[in-house]
Amino acid sequence: MSTSILRDSSISLYEQIAHQLLEEIQRGDYEPSGKLPSEAQLGERFGVSRVTVRLAVGKLSDDGVVERKQGKGTFVAAKQVRHGLDALRSFHEALLLQGLQPSMQVLSHTLQPVPEALRGLFEEADDCLLLERLHFVDDEPIALGRSHLPAALASVAWAEVEHQPIYSILESITGLAVTRADLAIRAQEADKNLASALHVKRGAALLVMERTSYFADGRSCDRTTFFIRPERYAFVLSGVFKSNPSS
């Protein structure tokens, strides 16, 4: 990377550094993690004091280009994750397809009676597995998923498959492919538990995606509700639609 700055310029050193870092960010030099070098590293690179570096990074922060994370460093401001609605893929796969480094953490897994509201989905079943997993991007929580799954998945060693998508686990255990999913999207305020898990304020608006998935024989195999931080996530539908001349 070029490190040239002009010390006799009418433009201050910190503004020159901020401009150069901005160009590098726009080129994608700090992908995929988005983490910038430390203040000490930037100071050594540009031959300036940490105070000057702090002013440059502060300008980028004020402009919304970067964000500082306590104890972790400075990162390129988070881009929205785009989840296409025109293909059948898991939440985790949608993150992977964008070159991100997602991870998951199992919060709980409990065998319980099928809730009354889901009896129409899990026909002839007395019990189902309730699984809660937290989804991360760059070690930052982006969504919490609550899944109701067939009781057969209660035998899964969840600590060993923590980072596998639900669909791949379903297919591995049952031998059946997931072929269809219905999605419903709404908004909801974060309660105390969701706010704590997702690092947002209580009452903050969340995107809620409710997914019901089916095997090829028409049996439901998954009802998952994702509670998603909206500033990090967008749902998109791509396609070309024929216009109706009479409309």
Rank of each mutant, 00 (worst) to 15 (best):
K192T: 07
Y14H: 15
P37A: 02
S90C: 03
L207S: 07
M1H: 06
Q164K: 11
S12H: 12
E24F: 02
V106H: 12
K242L: 13
A216D: 12
V66R: 04
V137N: 11
S155G: 12
F241T: 08
G28P: 10
E160A: 14
T110R: 06
P113R: 08
V161D: 08
S168R: 14
E116T: 05
R180I: 00
A125L: 09
D86E: 05
H135V: 01
S108D: 07
I185Y: 02
Q20T: 07
S33Y: 09
G99S: 06
K242W: 15
D138K: 12
I185H: 02
L111H: 09
T52R: 10
A157P: 10
D182R: 03
K192S: 13
H83T: 03
P150K: 12
L21F: 03
S213D: 11
A40E: 14
S49E: 04
L129S: 07
A117I: 04
D217P: 11
L96K: 15
K79S: 09
C128T: 02
E123N: 15
E231S: 10
D62H: 11
A187T: 09
F226Q: 07
I185E: 03
V137F: 07
S238H: 09
E162H: 08
D182V: 02
A125K: 12
A187G: 14
D217Y: 04
L237T: 04
P141F: 02
I173M: 15
D62F: 08
T3A: 13
L36P: 04
I185M: 03
A177G: 13
S38T: 11
V137T: 04
H109T: 07
A159R: 05
L13C: 13
E67M: 12
A205V: 06
V137S: 09
H92T: 02
D139M: 08
Y233G: 06
G28N: 09
Q26W: 06
L130P: 05
P165N: 13
V156S: 07
G218M: 03
A157I: 00
Q105A: 10
